[in-house]
Computed example of a mutant assay.
Amino acid sequence: MTNDTVSPPAILLLSGGLDSATVGAMARADGFALHALSFDYGQRHKAELQAADRVAKSLDVVEHKVAHIDLALFGGSALTADIDVPKGRSTKEMDTGIPITYVPARNTIFLSYALAFAEVRKARHIFIGVNAVDFSGYPDCRPDYIKAFQEMANLATSLGRSGEGRIEIRTPLLHMSKAEIVLAGTRLDVDYAQTTSCYDPDDQGRACGGCDACLLRREGFKAAGISDPTRYRDI
Rank of each mutant, 00 (worst) to 15 (best):
R89T: 06
K57Y: 00
T195V: 13
D4W: 12
D82T: 10
F135Y: 14
A21N: 02
G165T: 01
K46N: 10
S227T: 14
A213Y: 09
V55S: 06
E219Q: 12
G163K: 01
E93L: 09
L216H: 00
F135T: 01
L174M: 12
V130D: 05
D212Q: 11
I128Q: 07
E93S: 03
T230K: 05
L216K: 07
T108G: 13
K222A: 14
S15R: 14
R44H: 03
L183D: 10
T91V: 15
A72S: 14
E164P: 01
S58C: 07
V130A: 06
G97Q: 03
A51Q: 02
M26V: 13
A29C: 05
F110W: 09
A27K: 05
D4F: 12
A156G: 04
T195W: 01
H45N: 02
C211G: 08
S112Y: 11
R170F: 10
V6H: 08
L59N: 09
H68K: 15
I109L: 08
T196G: 03
D140S: 02
D19T: 01
G165I: 02
F32G: 04
I226V: 14
A148H: 03
L173T: 07
G210P: 00
G75S: 05
R166S: 14
A52R: 08
D212Y: 12
K122H: 10
S158K: 07
A81F: 09
K178A: 05
V66L: 13
A156M: 12
L159M: 09
D19A: 05
F135N: 13
I146M: 14
A51F: 09
F221R: 01
D191E: 09
V133G: 05
A156E: 11
L174S: 02
A118D: 07
S38Q: 05
L13W: 04
V6C: 04
D19F: 13
K92N: 08
D40L: 11
R121G: 03
L216F: 12
I167V: 06
R124S: 11
A213I: 02
A148P: 01
